[in-house]
Write a protein that binds this DNA or RNA. Structure first.
Lengths: 258, 258
DNA sequence: CAGCTTGATTTGGGATCCCAAAGTGATATT
DNA sequence: AATATCACTTTGGGATCCCAAATCAAGCTG
């Protein structure tokens, strides 16, 4: 599997635009998407729209409705849990492979800088929108660096694919954010961020010294932390912290209107 | 993620037909696929053909050529290695999840029967075409049972997706099979099958008694056996044993003309 | 004869057309 | 008034058309 990115399908771009809009909440949750309407919105004909819809269907972002048309998928907490579980498991493989890779040294600086950036946010102590975005971006860099540096293209490709659904969930949850933005939440978010970055540090050191077993084990623990966190939402009627989910999903840091 | 299979996209069917033909070697390795030609062959218009091609592109079975058109991907040994590595890693997750699942009991009989069937082949002692197919089918059942019984739909879906490339490789290698069909090869194939089924037995028992750690660990070892085996082909100029690869890829047992 | 240019043909992307199936609503019948 | 039936509308799947880009080939020029 040589280089793919950059000469992907053209209509992948359209799919990306639609996906982005879905995630950003342009359409209603569970809304029916008719091809004609999408044609109006994106100002293209039905052919490229249909190509894009098939791709989005494979990503589980949209579903086929009963009769005709697609509807936007409404992921359950369990859906997110499953997706994150798979992604985390693959990341532990990536950590092991990168620790065994001989060319890993050149990617280490990116990881180190990501850890530093998160530490800077932690030192500042408060988690405003800017700081949150900063931490998200750094977290994404940390994880995606491992995914690409592991040398197995299937890992990064699959992880990217599987991140779309958590992104959709994060997008639909962002509007509830303000209601749950209490001091208590902020404290807990900071705690999670601190714990997560400590794990980052251990993973970094393990990969640096080529300790594949420790790298994989620690990444697994890091992933379990996230899975356990999401699992709490199956019981409590709490609102998911979007920042974590988005950061974990490895998506680009996007600006939310809310 | 509720039930998907059964109401998939219609043109997924066309994609499956084309994929099957590609794997079966109907087209030349690295051949250019023009849409018009595919229209003639499958007697449909360009629209569904294009939809199918996009899906196959995502499966890495075909690639976009430099200028126009798609070409059939020629996977390297390293490609196969990577795909099998990811699949194996996900299977170890599946084994763990199934061991933790409360409804696992109802799927255990399928696994037990698969192990028995492979043992029957081993007892017979020779590995003719029929016996090989029998072992393949049983192996597929063993693995796919775990994938579906694990309860995480992403695992099975992703594994299925990622199996297409090894299938393509297996298909293109099937023609070399006769040249490498020596007594020595048969001996080794039998040895691998015996080893593999012993691992199956351990995995089965671990899942049965709910020992998630052991189930995952043994599945991991089972997967590493396969990865190590494939890795030998990077050094030696040997020809891959198709039966193992196909069985491991979890594909339907197909009949080869060769 | 080599290299460049230009015209013809292939080919893929997008738009439009046609049709069948499913949804919708109105009307007629009991 | 309730229900069943039928016409009308919506909508998605497939086929065809158009166009632009790219490939190929022949011819022209240095």
């Amino acid at each position: 599997m040589r280089e793919h990115r950059g000469m992907e399908s053209i209509d992948t771009e359209l799919a990306a635009r639609i996906r982005q809009d879905i995630i950003m909440g342009v359409f209603e949750e569970g809304e029916r998407l008719s091809e004609a309407r999408l044609c109006d919105i994106y100002e293209v004909s039905r052919t490229p729209i249909r190509l894009a819809l098939r791709l989005l269907e494979r990503e589980r972002i949209i579903r086929r409705g009963e009769g005709r048309g697609y509807i936007i998928y409404s992921p359950t907490v369990d859906d997110i849990l499953q997706a994150v579980q798979v992604r985390g498991h693959l990341e532990s493989l990536a950590a092991r492979l990168m620790a065994q890779s001989e060319t890993r040294a050149q990617s280490l600086p990116h990881m180190a800088r990501a850890i530093e950036n998160i530490n800077a946010v932690l030192d500042a102590g408060n988690l405003g929108d800017a700081a949150r975005r900063e931490a998200q971006a750094a977290n994404k860099i940390f994880h995606s660096t491992i995914l690409t540096a592991c040398g197995n293209d299937y890992v990064s490709f699959t992880c990217e694919q599987i991140s779309h659904l958590p992104m959709l969930a994060a997008g639909s949850m962002v509007f509830d954010r303000s209601t749950s933005e209490t001091q208590d939440h902020m404290e807990r978010a900071l705690f999670r961020l601190r714990l997560g970055n400590a794990q980052h540090q251990v993973i970094f050191e393990a990969i640096e010294k080529g300790d594949a077993v420790r790298a994989e084990g620690m990444m697994r623990e890091h992933s379990h932390t996230m899975v356990d966190y999401i699992r709490t939402f199956e019981r409590k009627d709490d609102s998911l912290t979007v920042a974590d989910l988005i950061a974990y999903s490895g998506a680009e840091p996007v600006t939310f209107s809310g």
